[in-house]
Design a protein around this nucleic acid. Structure first.
Lengths: 353, 353
DNA sequence: TTGTACGCGTTATCAC
DNA sequence: GTGATAACGCGTACAA
């Protein structure tokens, strides 16, 4: 404790009489540098005018002491937009699409010296609410998330409490919200049109949840492709999954067991596509001869699968990047009109249909 | 709401018409419930003896006000083990193995009412250090991570600063640290022994980094399998990757371009396996006739691949669970001896070798 | 340009 | 059982 030590630090010997037991705080730095804590604080935040030489001296002392600002204390005091933490709440971290998206968000945050608090709500609105509360209680500067459904009252509530929210992938019906989406209707349209061009007239749809924007829009693309081709939609071929693997497997089984089964399957996300493949594999059906297959979202092994899987690819990483950028823009200018980006999906025609 | 209350504060009675614009705090709850802030705090934390009826009353008021504890303020004040936040720093969130592991950690944390701060260091020691600092500055109760390498000084430093660390998947050379591993040496041994039993004598190894415990141990399993089979190891067949997809692709290309190429390839993680498959696919080689293939870690499409991929499966989710449990045990009893769990991998023989 | 003093919302400690 | 009060470490209005 109060003992005086001679210590070699950064190449020079120093007399130290400080508590060595706990981490140094602003006060410690101030004392050591013979300045006030405001001066130290200001050199850290870059706010206020401190003479260059004072700043250098303070920085030197911080280095000597191995001082690291306490993010918790800082956040408690700092005002909105300056807390250096954003929240990312995603439906399913085990979905490669969201993993890529998360990387996009994280990289931009990292460059801005922000940390990301990443949570996983497992497509469960109750868990989504829990994490929404956590984010609020953690005083994050903003939240990025694909809401559980289009009319997500919990998200709206958080937003009205003053925390900026950016919707990614899925959106909210409220148009005043910042969002980054991919053109789902178009992506789905192209997929189904591709199938129809190949001669398919009975296309089984493994759709996403009807109350998500992505589910609704991809369904609409499916309908439009039929409409434009003059093909009537057989409603029994449309089934709603939950974007998870088992639902894809089960729905594929249902569809393929129909008296008049579809000749092609369109899975509205990657996990459900995997599920569908499970079923096709179990029934030893040949792709695309017996069932043609197309999916939404690319997959690591898709290109080398047998046959290579045709999918609608989404720029997941870029979606994350843009969303983070939008959020940072929002932090700079809270009053700006809502930003809304729509990126383009891309049909990657491979061999499965 | 806007109702006027008479409240005793700082020794004098005041008329309060509380501000409804910002979130209610402990003080607001206390005022409204006509109790001290200590009473409110204690009903929240469950510490101290408060009469059941007082507690109920306080809870009622909290509900009325929509009060949510401020996690930041709480963490600033609470002592170690009671801050309700743990950090999870993983090498690559795009690796399904780590995504599963993360889910395991998260589920246990969620049950314990802890939040998880998940970060991704991209196998980059500098980024690992950044997030280690963030965790420290965020005053997390503990950190779970697969260290970038076995002698990770940064991790040790954090640990010595007093924050409990649990190593998962990979470990540190320091034996006094809590850890949950899978038996890498055994898993690798079984994989290679399987290959040898199938008649292979020249097995190309796409190894992990030599300075990670997993990389080292899986290499050792490779050697032991050869030793026990009385086969000399051809060192030119051993190449070190970085657990990422491109390195798997490149190393597979190198190995298959050898004058005397291997008849089988063993990729030491799932991402490098995918990379290897890319190369095999590009060269139009038949699996397993022209190249047999085996991988470490399962993959979503592995079972339905053509041919189905033989892999060493690790209980990723359980690794995460156990690690979180170990951490919570450590928080309860900081002095307990280091816990060390070793789970068993499982060879899933499918068709690729 | 720099310093003083207060407050952020909570938990811990000591008093009653 | 309950209450008053001192921290926790930092940002900032206000003073100098």
């Amino acid at each position: 404790m109060g003992c005086s030590l001679r210590v070699k630090l950064d190449g020079e010997w120093l007399n130290v009489t400080e508590r060595m037991n706990s981490k140094p705080s602003l006060v410690d730095v101030a004392k050591r540098a013979n300045v006030s804590i405001s001066t130290v604080s200001r050199t850290i935040t870059g706010t206020g005018k401190i003479s260059e030489e004072t700043q250098e001296h303070v920085r030197q002392v911080m280095r000597e002491l191995g001082y690291k600002p306490n993010r918790v204390a800082r956040r408690l005091r700092a005002r909105e937009g300056k807390r250096h933490l954003i929240g990312l709440i995603i439906p399913n971290i085990q979905n490669p699409f969201f993993a890529d998206l998360a990387r996009g968000v994280e990289d931009v945050a990292y460059k801005n010296n922000f940390a990301v608090m990443l949570c996983n709500y497992d497509e469960d609105p109750k868990k989504e609410l829990f994490y929404l509360d956590v984010m609020q209680a953690e005083q994050v500067d903003g939240i990025i998330l694909p809401p559980a459904h289009e009319e997500d009252a919990d998200v709206q509530r958080v937003r009205q409490s003053g925390i900026p929210v950016v919707c990614v992938d899925r959106s909210l019906s409220d148009p005043t919200i910042d969002k980054v989406e991919v053109d789902n209707e178009q992506g789905s349209f192209e997929a189904v049109a591709h199938l129809i061009k190949k001669g398919h007239k009975r296309i089984g749809l493994i759709s996403g949840p009807g109350d998500t924007s992505t589910g609704r829009e991809r369904l609409e693309g499916y309908r439009r492709a039929h409409r434009e081709a003059g093909i009537a939609v057989d409603e029994t071929l449309i089934r709603y999954g939950d974007y998870k693997q088992p639902s894809g497997r089960d729905i594929a089984a249902e569809l393929l067991s129909l008296a008049k089964p579809p000749t092609a399957l369109f899975a509205c996300n990657n996990l459900m596509l995997i599920g569908a493949i499970e079923t096709i594999f179990a029934r030893k059906l040949k792709i695309p001869q017996q069932v043609a297959l197309i999916g939404y979202d690319d997959l690591p092994l898709a290109a080398v699968f047998d046959p290579p899987l045709t999918v609608v690819q989404q720029p997941a990483y870029e979606v994350g990047q843009r969303a983070a950028e939008l959020l940072f823009k929002r932090l700079e200018d809270p009053g700006a009109p809502a930003g809304s980006l729509q990126l383009a999906p891309k049909l990657i025609a491979r061999g499965s249909c």
